[in-house]
Amino acid sequence: MNPINWHSCFFLLAAAVACAAALGVVASKNVVRMAVFLLHALGAVAGLFFLAGADFVGAMQLMIYVGGTLVLIAFGVMLTARRPFLSMDTKLAQWIAGTLVGGCLLAVLLRSALSVDDWAGPVSAAPRAQAEDLATAAPLGMGMLGVRVDRLDEPEAARREGMSGYLLPFEIISVHLLVVLIGAAYLARSTRPGEARLRENVEDKINAG
């Protein structure tokens, strides 16, 4: 019997949690429980990132996705969690249509994923088992500043091609983020119609009475 491959074990564990939680998001009706399932799905995906050697992306996933975006979503859930919206039923026809679309998509994706034999196992002779050997943070940071340190071992021509780095996308995304945040703040800040009128009414009553 072959020795147990611990990397595979942890992969299977994380993958099982991710898939089960994703199905839980689909299956559960209660929006709060959906958020909990999503929390587990995203956390497990972060674990898969770690296993795939992307520890910086994994940490980012935990920090921004799980710690930021999901808190935001939970916030939204709680703000709108009134009885009728807590769990909303979907019509059977919609379920059938949705499952059909999803099923077809899954079939296509699985077909293409399983079609290449080379992808079934690791090709590289040196699997990177030790997480401490991974150093993705610095190359990523350098890449965002325009220096592709991950391409240093490539031939000159290929290197020059990729050496421009990600400075421009980084800048674009920064500006984009800023715009988006300002827009979100503006949207959420807008006063609610009716409320001002309501307040005025109340104040009149108080002043009169």
Binding site: L79, P193, G194, L198, N201, V202, K205, I206, G209
Partner: peptide, 19 residues
């Protein structure tokens, strides 16, 4: 008295807010 009247009114037009 005034307070109760106002409370009743608030409840009545409360639909759109999260009070």
């Amino acid at each position: 008295m005034v307070m109760e009247r106002i409370s009743a009114e608030l409840v009545e037009c409360d639909v759109h807010t999260d009070e």
